[in-house]
Nucleic acid binder design. Structure first.
Lengths: 345, 345
DNA sequence: TTGAAAGCGTTACCAG
DNA sequence: CTGGTAACGCTTTCAA
């Protein structure tokens, strides 16, 4: 069926090796020969077999990406950034949704390894990362968003601590003192760091972090909803609430609506992530009433930088150079909108 | 570096071919031999090379998916459905964002063909589809969401006409007569079909489709915004507006907000697509004020069915059977919420 | 039931 | 600068 390099060689009256040289090296071929070969390629409509090439050169120009949730706005942005950068560099990406499940993540990783991807982008469901069982070979990994302990390799994430601090400081400067955090799991790096930024800002302002105002959610909508209800049912409820990720922010808003608590009059809220959708960077946070004050994460940039870092490391390994191992923290940005206001009285 | 099938064979004291048989056929191997080989595999930590295997068997267990916009709620759902189904069947998916650009789509398709994917899932940016230039081989394609004319091969999409009819009928039954449509491009099948459903419902009710109330947008937020403003600035504005996709719905809502027009008091609105995010099927449409009445599309199911159909066709080709060529229309569902109400007076 | 050998479509090495 | 030949790691005949 398929037309191979040999067919081209035959038609052009040269050897297969020569065709390969024409195809792969810019130089070292007489102009006449090159034209000859190119014509044969065109008439036969030849397309090199990427699989055969991969087998031979031991490089697939393929990346694997596994993340805990494919259809959220944040990861949607990451996907775009990663895809754009990969395309630019001639790489394709296998995208795998682990469903935040460790077993599924392992399964995906095993598949990716078997497929000989050149590198992996990983937002791991695991708290402590061990390389996939029996990978055989070492494949460069770049962690993004959440960074498991025990990792080896570079990571790119948002400056979560700084972002949470800014959010908290904003509330403090508005005059809030009873500020609550619906935190993510402290076992996940982003959850821990955001909690830590919150604590630091509170501490710096001489405000106590009351136990009943510091609730750990699970990064899921339902958890955020539950925590919000708990907070708002307190004898003395908080005057401001920060939710530590996009889904819990929705839960929080729903709880407010269900309980009929006006925002920002009775309680100010800040979400994490700007709920950006579509290619033009439109924020859904502006469609809520009131418009949501948020800490925006640079999702697109995260994907882009993660791919760039991974490609860099792949290159370094080939050149047997030292690889990057550090954590790259992309800046978060507080976007003040209508959901935050000074507390009553 | 990597441990190969030969290493396993050597350790187990058999030939490479035998190891392959043990690995790939359930039967025809003595129990003792099998155990022997398996032990060798375990101790060596051997993992078959998927690339080499693909080259030999001329099948990659890989699918390509190209879509015009990766980070929208609708396609996010499709991605999940497709990914889940592919995983179940042992396939991996290359996901490619064409950015709704024909040239980029062609580029992606060429890459996918070179990589010898077993099949392609395509939400095409092209109105008239031609197979990618010089694909060499015929690869099965399943179209999803939008269906270009000139296609060959099956397609799965929402029952757009029916969905638009239901939406229109709902408004009519509420008493609306001046109903406007912010349509998608009529060159795109989904746009055309939704417009057609709208027309049909209006016709059946004996209502005219006024020219000034039938605007063609571009499926983008800005376009929806512009159309909405135009409609609402009319001397006699419509009492109800339907927007034909998710981004134009946002544009419509924004226009309403900017112009300070109360919904549903002064104008009722219906969006297309339910803005579902996350794994639990949570609809963002419920977070707007008022909650949005929408025509929901079964995005997850679309992805799932598309993959299933594609795999079916791949199998049929191998068995040299006739392949499916029809259009599968998944039902749309009207979800009535707060943004639709009877017109004033 | 098992082994040997011939490819799958490339690229890389080594002669000429 | 070009051609032949040997891999790459696997599966699949075909014999034994």
């Amino acid at each position: 069926m398929g037309v191979t390099i040999k067919d081209v060689a035959k038609l052009a009256g040269v050897s297969a090796g020569t065709v390969s040289v024409v195809l792969n090296s810019k130089t070292g071929v007489s102009e006449k020969l090159r034209e000859n070969v190119m014509r044969a390629i065109a008439t036969l409509n030849y397309h090199p077999d990427h699989i055969a090439r991969s087998l031979r050169v031991r490089r697939t120009n393929t990346l694997g990406m596994v993340l805990p949730q494919i259809n959220t706005m944040f990861f949607g942005q990451v996907l775009r950034g990663a895809g754009d950068e990969a395309l630019r560099e001639g790489y394709s990406i296998f995208i795998c949704d682990s469903n935040a499940d460790v077993a599924q993540e392992q399964r995906h990783l095993a598949t990716l390894y078997a497929r000989r991807v050149d590198g992996v982008l990983l937002a791991s469901a695991e708290v402590y990362f061990h390389r996939p069982e029996g990978a055989g070979r070492e494949i460069p990994i770049v962690f993004f968003d959440r960074i498991p302990s025990g990792r080896r390799g570079p990571a790119v994430t948002t400056d979560n601590s700084e972002g949470a601090q800014e959010a908290t400081n904003h509330l403090i400067s508005l005059g809030h003192r009873r500020i609550a955090l619906i935190s993510g799991p402290l076992s996940i790096s982003t959850g821990f760091e955001r909690a830590e930024g919150f604590r630091r800002a509170m501490g710096a302002a001489g405000l106590p972090v009351r136990e009943e105002l510091f609730l750990c959610g699970d990064y899921m909508l339902e958890g955020g909803y539950r925590c919000a209800k708990e907070l708002l049912s307190l004898p003395v409820p908080p005057t401001a609430i920060i939710a530590a990720n996009e889904e819990m922010t929705m839960g929080l808003i729903q709880a407010l609506a269900d309980m009929g608590i006006p925002c920002p009059e009775r309680v100010s809220i800040i979400g994490f992530d700007d709920l950006v959708t579509g290619p033009n960077g439109f924020s859904l946070a502006t469609m809520f009433v009131p418009k949501l004050t948020v800490v925006a994460q640079p999702g697109y940039e995260t994907g882009k930088v993660a791919v760039r870092t991974l490609l860099q490391n792949i290159g370094d390994i080939e050149r047997k150079q030292e690889q990057e191992e550090g954590i790259i923290r992309l800046p978060a940005e507080l976007r003040v909108r209508g959901s935050t206001a000074p507390p009553l009285r």
